[in-house]
Design a protein around this nucleic acid. Sequence first.
DNA 1: CAGCATCCCAGAGGATACTG
DNA 2: CAGTATCCTCTGGGATGCTG
Lengths: 120, 120
Amino acid sequence: MKSEKKIIPSVTCPIFRAQKIISGKWKIYLLYLLSQGTKRFSDLYRETPGITQAMLSKQLRELEAAGIISRYVYPEIPPKVEYSLTELGQNFMPVLDELAKWSCTHLHPEEGEEKISGSA
Amino acid sequence: MKSEKKIIPSVTCPIFRAQKIISGKWKIYLLYLLSQGTKRFSDLYRETPGITQAMLSKQLRELEAAGIISRYVYPEIPPKVEYSLTELGQNFMPVLDELAKWSCTHLHPEEGEEKISGSA
DNA sequence: CAGCATCCCAGAGGATACTG
DNA sequence: CAGTATCCTCTGGGATGCTG
């Protein structure tokens, strides 16, 4: 524990703060899914091929901690949990929209070098 | 070694593709810096407290590989290298703008749990 | 159904030293 | 000045299994 004050742009720069919140392999994608409306855990799980329950749960809790999404647990058996965007999450949508536009317009897969050749 | 093709949204979803490109601790911030105009390596280095030359170099090369920024090397001694946004990078600015707006409007440091109390 | 616990690993990120 | 090269740490992310 160094008590030295490190001057980092983390707090100074809004870009930095935002970036930290949305960083994560699935965060933005999950926000995109939730922009379509309230969804259950299983919905998100099914619509996010490749993710594990553990990861999904983790990412969702992080997004919840950031105040971007909210979680509603139905007092039922079997459990039912719904996730939805908060006000903050709704306000994030323009960013997502611009990102999607940018990606769709300029980031065509065929221009990249990546290929979905499986795990070869 | 499963030769099975994993169906991941990586390629399907534009959001996913974009996210992979801008992921990285400094990418977005560097794009922000370069949005202010062409800058030299040393400029970026000085304006990004906390980063190391190695990291800066790495991030810049990744951004360059993604076609978002361009690099111009002056044939001089001592070396002089300038970085600037490409067309693709310019087109990304709206995203950055929205992100900044979102962060500034809704992501006040005092609302979070983080505090820059430094050596407090 | 939803999610936690545990273990594991690759790679992102960092510190330091050296070079054309 | 603008980088490499090397080494090291840390944590994001993944696999699997268990539970209320």
